[in-house]
Write a protein that binds this DNA or RNA. Structure first.
Lengths: 232, 232
DNA sequence: CGCACGCCTTGAGTTAGGTCAAGCACCTGA
DNA sequence: TCAGGTGCTTGACCTAACTCAAGGCGTGCG
C-alpha cells in the first residue's frame, strides 16, 4: 500500500464515529487491522448468513444492503456511499454472521475493520464504547422511524419524506435540485414500492407543481411545501 | 419499601441482560437508584418526546409502546410484559427523550432505572458495556426483521409468523394452544392491519384447517405446517 | 450508422386490504 | 332480569398499489 493510500485510509477512518474518542495509539492499532478491498460493479462483498470477521466502511462508490424475499424480489435495507460504515452489528454477535447481503452498485472500494481488533480496542476505551452505543441507539431510532413510515403512511407520503431527506439541511426555501442516490428501481425498492408506482407518484408530484423531474435530477420547487407534507 | 419488595426488585434487576456481568458492588449501586412505580390500566407512563431521566423494567402487568400517526391511529412498536426492559435507548441520547408513548394495558408496576446512575456504572464495567452493545445489536436485528416482514410480505404471512412466534420453542409437532398476548385490536395493530382484517384472516386460517380460534385462545392444529408457511 | 439492450414510463386489469355500517356475543352494573 | 357498553365479526364498497404488457428513449457496440 502506498503512503498516499495509507493517509487516505487514515482520514477515512478518523472521521468515523467509532474512532472519534480514541487516542492516537488505539487509532493506530485499529488502522493496522484495516484492509482495503476493491469491488467490481454488481460484485457481492458478502451474503446474508456468511460468517463475519470484518465490518466495513465505503471508501469509493456505492453499495446496496438488501435481503431476498420469498419470490426473488429484494428489500433494500440501506444504500451506503463513500464515508458510510455498515455491518458494525456483527462485532457484538455470537456467532457473528452478516444480517444482509451487500453488493456493489458501481465499481467501489471498501475498507474492512477486524472484528477482534475492534473489540479489543473497545475494551480499553470507554469513550469509544459510548460513541458506539450512542450510534446504535440512533440507528434503532432510525429503524423505528422507518417502521413508522412503512406502516402508517402511504407511498406518496413515503416518497415525499424521502425527497425531503435528500435536501441539504440549510432549510432554504429556494428551489433546489437534488440527485437521486441510485437508479430509480433501487429508490423504488428502498421505498417499498414497484418502479411503476414510483414513476406514477413522481408524475403526480410534478402535476401538483411540487417538483420537476429530469432523469435522476429532481428539482424541488418548493421545499417548504414539501416539508409541510411530511408532517402530520 | 419492605424487605420482601426489595428482594423482589433485586431478583428482577439481576435477571436483566445489562446487569449480568456486573459485580456485586456495581449491582447494588444500580439497585439503589431503582424506583418502583404502580400504573393503573390505561395510564400513561411517558409520552413520546418527553424528557427522559429513567428507563424501565416491567415488574407486573403489560404495557404497549406505540406512536401516533397522522390520523389518530396508532402504530404499536412493542408489547412488554413482566421481566421486559424498555426505553433503554434514552441512556445514550443527547438530549434524552422518549421515542414512543408507553401506556399500561392493565394495572401494572414498573421499575425505573436512573439514566445517570446507569451511565456511571457502564463507565466502570466493560463487560456491562459489551452486553448492552450485544443487546442493542440484537434489537437492530429484530427491527430489520420486522421491516422485512412488513414490506416483503402480506398480512396473511405476517399473521402466520406471529402465531408461529407464540409457540413454545420445543418444536413439537402436536397441536398446541397459545394465548394471544393482548386484545385482538392490539394484536392487529402490532401486525399493521385493521381488526377487521385480522378477523377475516383468522377465519381463513380456520377454513384451511390450520388453526382453531376460541376467543383469545388459538389452537395450532399443525405447528409444522405453520412453520413451513413462514419460510420462503 | 443502426441495432439491441436496459431502464423508464404508460396503460389496463386485478386484488389485498382499508373504510363504513350493521349485527352479534359477552359482561357488568342497576 | 334487562339495558348499555365493549369488543369482535361480517358484509358491501372502494381505493392504492401490484401485475402484466407494450411502447419510448437513451447508450453502447458491432
Amino acid at each position: 500500500m502506498t503512503a498516499t493510500k495509507k493517509l487516505d485510509l487514515d482520514a477515512l477512518l478518523s472521521s468515523q464515529y467509532f474512532v472519534v474518542g480514541l487516542d492516537e495509539a488505539l487509532r493506530d492499532r485499529l488502522l493496522a487491522s484495516a484492509t482495503q478491498q476493491p469491488l467490481a460493479a454488481d460484485e457481492h462483498l458478502f451474503m446474508q448468513g456468511d460468517s463475519a470477521s470484518r465490518f466495513y466502511i465505503v471508501h469509493k462508490g456505492q453499495l446496496k444492503l438488501y435481503r431476498n424475499s420469498a419470490k426473488g424480489s429484494e428489500r433494500i435495507m440501506g444504500l451506503v456511499s463513500a464515508g458510510d460504515s455498515f455491518a458494525e452489528g456483527i462485532v457484538f454477535m455470537q456467532p457473528p454472521r452478516y444480517p444482509v447481503n451487500a453488493r456493489a452498485l458501481v465499481a467501489s472500494s471498501v475498507v474492512g475493520v477486524q472484528r477482534e481488533a475492534f473489540l479489543a480496542i473497545l475494551s480499553e476505551s470507554f469513550p469509544a464504547c459510548l460513541s458506539v452505543m450512542a450510534q446504535m441507539a440512533k440507528r434503532i431510532q432510525n429503524l423505528m422511524n422507518e417502521i413508522e413510515a412503512l406502516t402508517l403512511q402511504n407511498g406518496r407520503y413515503r416518497l415525499i419524506r424521502f425527497l425531503y431527506s435528500l435536501l441539504p439541511n440549510d432549510h432554504s426555501q429556494a428551489p433546489t435540485t437534488v440527485h437521486l442516490p441510485a437508479r430509480k428501481r433501487e429508490v423504488a425498492a428502498r421505498l417499498s414500492m414497484q418502479p411503476e408506482t414510483l414513476s406514477r407518484l413522481l408524475k403526480l408530484l410534478c402535476q401538483d407543481g411540487l417538483i420537476n423531474v429530469q432523469g435522476d435530477r429532481i428539482n424541488i420547487l418548493d421545499p417548504d411545501a414539501l416539508r409541510k407534507l411530511t408532517l402530520p
